[in-house]
């Protein structure tokens, strides 16, 4: 029990950025757009959030800045892929390269700066319950926000008319267009939402996960988030399972390294990436295939 509780707590913190980024990308992909730039948007979110939080000494403004940065990059992506109907895979890669570079430029002035991580929100009474208290009621705001976001996205996608439209646009944009749905407007909204979530995930990394900013601190989390979306078969609740699974793998390898298992640390560090590959292989070709939005990655140029 002594070991389990801190382990679960760290798993939650490791899973939250993955979950935040993945839930945004899930909505984007459900509308039929594949945005591979998650890593870049996250990196920008982390850098901008930290820079703004340090300069204004306000965590709230920092978070807003991170979200705004992610959204701004997503808007650029939308201009390219929706406006110019450019190749989505290539644009996503461009967005990653651009985002990583820009985040380096912005963050350079803040290397070495330190800011206390976000406080945990303690709920008097409930937080004192042994084990359950700290795990369920002693998290920072991001953790609660991520769970609320997942629930909200699930409700939106499957219980609202707008959600139905979004799924229709992603599954068959020609029919949706014929029925009068504004395909590109729906996709724009979905891409911007994805960017905002990635920016939020980045803000979590630099404002809550660690008390500082370093270059490349996203360390492939954006790509793992993309893999989690595939793993989830585009279903919000499974996304949550996926994020926590990957969070566990990355924490387990830390524990294993700490425990001094005689394996090279580099091998342990590569476990999350190997696990991603394994999961992609395991999930591919099963039922998941059929669930992918049918128009994923296909540009739409309305015909007259």
């Amino acid at each position: 029990m002594n070991l389990l509780e801190p382990a679960i707590l760290t798993i939650i913190t490791a899973a939250t950025p993955l979950l935040l980024a993945a839930i945004g990308e899930l909505v984007t992909e459900r509308s039929g757009v594949l945005n591979l730039g998650v890593e870049g948007m996250m990196a920008m979110g982390a850098a901008c959030a930290f820079a703004i939080a340090i300069t204004t000494d306000s965590t709230a403004l920092g978070i807003a800045g991170g979200v705004a940065a992610g959204t701004a990059l997503a808007a650029l992506f939308a201009l390219m892929t929706l406006g110019f109907a450019a190749n989505q895979v290539a644009c996503g890669l461009a967005l990653t390269i651009l985002g990583l570079g820009l985040s380096g430029l912005i963050g350079a002035d803040f290397v070495g700066a330190r800011r206390d991580p976000m406080p945990k929100l303690e709920i008097p009474g409930l937080s004192d319950i042994p084990f359950i208290g700290p795990v369920l009621f002693g998290q920072d705001a991001f953790v609660y926000a991520s769970v609320v976001l997942v629930a909200g996205v699930w409700w939106f996608l499957f219980h609202t008319r707008a959600g139905l439209t979004l799924r229709a646009v992603g599954d068959n944009h020609v029919s949706a267009h014929a029925l009068g749905s504004k395909v590109l407007k729906v996709r724009l909204a979905a891409v911007l939402f994805g960017g905002a979530c990635s920016g939020l995930a980045g803000a979590y990394l630099s404002l809550a996960y660690t008390p500082f900013w370093v270059k490349g601190m996203t360390a492939g989390r954006g790509w793992i988030a993309l893999a989690i979306v595939v793993f989830s078969s585009w279903l919000p609740w499974r996304l949550m399972v996926g994020a926590y699974l990957f969070g566990s793998v990355s924490i387990l390898q830390l524990y294993a390294q700490g425990a001094g298992i005689g394996l090279p640390s580099q091998l342990m560090s590569s476990l999350p990436y190997l696990a991603t590959i394994l999961v992609l292989v395991a999930i591919a070709g099963t039922r998941a295939r059929a669930r992918a939005p049918a128009c994923l990655g296909v540009p739409f140029v309305p015909d007259r």
């Binding site: 450019a86 644009c91 990653t96 390269i97």
Partner: peptide, 26 residues
Amino acid sequence: VPLDFTSVLQGVLLFYVLACDTLIVN
């Protein structure tokens, strides 16, 4: 000038290339 400046430029370049490519078919 920080080295990241170069990667920003290279990312921007890729965006411009992809945008300009649209003009080939449209």
